[in-house]
Design a protein around this nucleic acid. Structure first.
Length: 642
DNA sequence: GCGGATCAC
DNA sequence: TATGGTGATCCGC
């Protein structure tokens, strides 16, 4: 257990080595000896500002862990552990009783997507060691991964690992094109699938299997074969009763393989028992370390330490971890809806700048990009957040809210950003960004109940085939968004917005452009740190020692579950009380019937009324028929450092 | 509402 | 020489 208080054999601690190795360490196709590779990476990084910042974060985390251990020991003192365990066991029984094994969920994941598309266009790359990106790598071929080269890694470090590495520039429009093709094949199996990113999606094939009397394995096998036949790209898949399990399973036989988990509670629990917690979506490197510090490395360990987790629920989130231990999660799959968007922003990295006018110039450029996006996608909002990163890599944000919808003109965005940045100067920065939240959808005026309206419109336009680009509200998924991915780490890359669907190509391309990874900067080392300049404000959250933590600064920590993670099953046809966003009547019916009712209301030209009405009330929140997407989240928290 | 922080891709 | 960009969410003020 506690691997951190042990003496370090080398100068760089294990945790720091691990941190420097990047977030995608647990991925498929890794290298011979991770240790040697981590060493090379650390040596190549040593001395840089980036390295120093990682070191600082690592130290903060170590201190936080020490506080947690102290809290744990204190909390366990004098309490009846057996009793607590008993109580937790009862909670587990209840969760178990709600387990839903009725839905067949599939997670599909394209293998080394960008790299494989490049091979498509240049077959001579097949089997060779190459990467896609520039400055920072977006993805690496499987052969390159064997040498420790991963997405998110700076090119110069990758070349230390393999000097002859060939690096190909990203061709985002091309990837988007292939993504569309592949997604459309997936949709044959579930028209309601969720495209989670350019290269990844979730399907519910329960109906499909039932209709054809085929097993899930057969269907997925056929689907994967179809993708390969029609696109020459391979995909890996996971089949399980919920999204979390399906995602974990898709990684099991990658590349070009599939893995099905038996739809049986005993099998699922056995599967989770030995699974590294790091494999659980939502648990990243930080939470991995926090959990490990109290002895939890696998999901099975969650049960062993249930008493501690219960006592420290605030920090770790007992509920979410228990669900994870049981292998229970959301099995809800539906397409992304435009109204789910919560923010829109732009940010740019550049070689460090200290000059005020030059910084404003950068801010202006970012403002222009943001204007473009907001216009193109039809959004405005009420809050603007400035983000900046010092040349020391420390990140800060400063926000301002308005009681009106802001102008999307770049001049206005710039003015707001300037107002936020000015009081912080002087600073030496390497990144500036602007983000708008508290959004209002300018296309579909329904900011009032978007959920259903959108849903209806979407299916309607789908059948009639859209083709025209914008206007006419209702656009289905404007491609915008989505989940968005960008460079990924784990294996894959990035993003793109709207692949979703058939519909406007032009728009799609625009979106794609923005995805390009910039990495521009020609870094010149900034001569001096000038680190002295620190963000003024800073609110030391210090007092935050909400707990009785001992020492100084940082407050809390730890993991927590989130309400999300749909605890229960919820097949979908459950009768419940719901209020129609159009006619405002409260109805008792299941979702299918409810959507039909909404269709009815909409068909009566109720749209206009709804729009008029909604523009008056800006706040109504989208209604939600089902649990939302997104996993858990919520794990650790920490205070500010330094 | 604000700011820090973590995570996914 | 040199380490992305977009979006979401959570927590503690």
């Amino acid at each position: 257990m506690d691997s951190n208080s042990a003496p370090r054999p080398t100068q760089t601690s294990d945790s720091l080595l691990h941190r420097l190795a990047g977030p995608s360490t647990t991925k498929a196709g890794l290298a011979n000896d991770q240790t040697d590779i981590n060493r090379v990476i650390a040596d190549a990084s040593k001395g840089s500002k980036f390295y120093e910042n990682e070191k600082r974060k690592d130290k903060d985390l170590t201190e936080k862990i020490n506080r947690i251990l102290q809290q744990r020991d204190e909390a366990r003192r004098g309490v009846d552990i057996a009793q607590i365990e008993h109580n937790v066991d009862q909670v587990i029984s209840k969760m178990e009783a709600q387990r839903d094994l009725t839905q067949i969920i599939v997670h599909v994941d394209m293998d080394a997507f960008y790299a494989n598309v490049e091979i498509l266009d240049d077959p001579s790359l097949k089997g060779t060691i190459f990467a896609v990106g520039g400055g920072v790598l977006t993805t690496a071929s499987y052969e390159a991964r064997k040498h420790g080269i991963r997405s998110g890694m700076p090119e110069y470090i990758a070349k230390k690992l393999y000097p002859n590495l060939k690096v190909i520039r990203c061709n985002i429009p091309r990837y988007a094109e292939m993504s569309k093709k592949v997604m459309s094949i997936f949709r044959r199996y579930d028209p309601n699938m969720l495209a989670a990113s350019v290269d990844e999606g979730y399907l519910n094939i329960t109906q499909y299997c039932e209709d054809r009397l085929q097993t899930a394995d057969e269907v997925v096998q056929e689907m994967r074969r179809t993708v390969e036949e029609e696109t020459n790209l391979t995909v890996s898949a996971g089949i399980a009763p919920n999204k979390m399990l399906a995602k974990i399973c898709s990684d099991r036989n990658k590349p070009n393989g599939q893995f099905k988990l038996d739809f049986d509670a005993t099998t699922i629990k056995a599967f989770m028992h030995d699974l590294s917690i790091r494999k659980v979506p939502g648990i990243g490197r930080v939470n991995e370390r926090l959990l490990e510090s109290i002895g939890i490395k696998t999901c099975g360990d969650i049960y062993t330490h249930r008493a501690t987790l219960s006592l420290m629920d605030k920090q770790f989130g007992l509920h979410y971890l228990l669900q994870t231990y049981l292998g229970i999660a959301s099995n809800h799959v539906e397409p992304y809806h435009r109204e789910e968007r919560k923010s829109i922003g732009a940010e740019r990295t550049f070689s460090a700048i200290g000059d005020k006018d030059k910084l404003f110039k950068k801010l202006e450029e970012v403002a222009a990009e943001l204007e473009d996006d907001m216009e193109r996608h039809g959004w405005t909002g009420k809050t603007v957040t400035l983000k900046y990163k010092l040349d020391t890599y420390q990140v800060y944000t400063r926000a301002k809210s308005f009681d009106r919808w802001i102008s999307t003109k770049k001049e206005d965005l710039f003015a707001i950003g300037k107002e936020l940045l000015l009081p912080e100067l002087p600073l030496r920065l390497r990144l500036i960004g602007l983000r708008v939240t508290k959004l209002k959808d300018l296309r579909e005026n329904a900011d009032a109940k978007p959920g259903s309206i959108k849903r209806f419109l979407e299916s309607a336009s789908e059948s009639t085939s859209p083709r025209k680009k914008r206007k006419l509200d209702v656009d289905v998924n404007d491609g915008d968004n989505e989940d968005s991915p960008k460079l990924s780490q784990d294996g894959f890359e990035v993003s793109m917005p709207g692949y979703d669907d058939d519909e406007d190509e032009a728009n799609l391309e625009d979106d794609i452009e923005e995805l390009e990874i910039s990495t521009e900067g020609k870094p010149r080392s900034s001569s001096k740190p000038s680190s002295s300049s620190k963000p003024s404000s800073s609110k030391p959250t210090s007092l935050a020692s909400s707990f009785r933590i001992t020492s100084s600064s940082k407050p809390n920590s730890a993991i927590k579950p989130t309400s999300r993670s749909t605890p229960a099953p919820k097949p979908e046809s459950e009768v419940q009380s719901q209020t129609c966003p159009i006619c405002s009547k409260t109805l008792q019916m299941d979702n299918t019937a409810f959507n039909a009712h909404i269709d009815f209301c909409l068909s009566k030209g109720a749209i206009r009324e709804a729009q008029a009405e909604s523009s008056a009330s800006i706040n109504s929140k989208p209604i939600r028929l089902e649990p939302r997407k997104h996993p858990p989240k919520k794990v650790a928290r920490r205070g500010k450092s330094r």
